[in-house]
Design a protein around this nucleic acid. Structure first.
Lengths: 153, 153
DNA sequence: TATTGACCTAAAGTTAGGTTTAGGAACTAT
DNA sequence: ATAGTTCCTAAACCTAACTTTAGGTCAATA
């Protein structure tokens, strides 16, 4: 069993955040002794899931909903599986978006290195948009790729 | 030249957001004709940079600061390069975090598929924490990896 | 001519996810 | 037993990034 302060240390979270999560219903089975919260391995595992679901873009309300499902036993396996499948797709999409962002950032790093070396941007601007060095051209092009929209636009 | 409505359509942004960006100083050279904003290729390019910097986690204020640097010419090349290098590191770190999250999400998908097939979680819980099928074990372990802290904790 | 549609501003409102404050209660080491 | 640390609650506060509202201009169309 852990006190709130220990758990806060383990997860590098402020104590106030853990209290807030509790108030929002994220620890449905959290116990207390004379008013003091007793975090068990169960709550530690819940915090790992919260971290994961938050990173995947889920809101606190929706995480609460999920925690309620876990108290319903096997009846909610299907709903829980669906939730994770949706989050997986969302995170995969986000990684593609970050990959494109990273291409642009790398391109910009090269851009300013070159501008510093040249003292101006003239030579670079003459290489745009399709006469850049091959590796840089790849970054530049991939940073400007459009994403697929579900409606094909 | 584009009107605000056209640009909003091109970037799938509400018009109100473009006005807000303008008010926050993100288009330092935006021109107007009888009060109406005239977006040029320059502002289109700025919007691509805004998108990139926002995705990298930069705040509007900081993006404004960057836009001010771009009006200072070659004197600010160094600062601009540094900014992009920092954002590159931040995004690389975020991608690692998302990768770990994705491992957990994939593990959870397998978990609930298996629980649905079995009708309960008993068999899975007996495999934890280190007797999972090899591919699943990898996901499980990588989802629990701790990140390096700069201070080695 | 009048109505529609796209533009404008300033200012107030919204939302999520916390954080801070004020006033206590409860363990723990001396 | 007393001082210090850690815990508790309720409620107010905060921030970023927008969004909405209210009231208005202007150009083209029916």
């Amino acid at each position: 069993m852990y006190t709130i302060g220990k758990v806060a240390g383990m997860f590098h979270l402020p104590i106030s955040t853990l209290r807030y999560y509790d108030k929002e219903g994220l620890f449905p089975t959290l116990e207390r002794q004379s008013g003091i919260r007793q975090f068990s391995e169960k709550e530690i595992e819940i915090l790992r899931v919260i971290e994961c679901l938050k990173t995947s873009g889920l809101e606190i309300k929706e995480i609460k909903q999920f925690m309620e499902w876990t108290t319903e036993g096997s009846a909610s396996y299907g709903k829980r599986k669906q939730l994770f499948e949706t989050r997986k797709r969302v995170v995969e999409e986000e990684m593609r978006r970050l990959g494109k962002t990273l291409s642009m950032l790398k391109f910009k790093c090269w851009y300013y290195e070159t501008a510093i070396a040249d003292g101006n941007e003239d030579r670079i601007k003459n290489m745009l948009p399709d006469r850049l060095p091959p590796e840089i051209q790849k970054l530049y092009d991939s940073s400007r790729e459009k994403f697929e929209s579900p409606d094909g636009t």
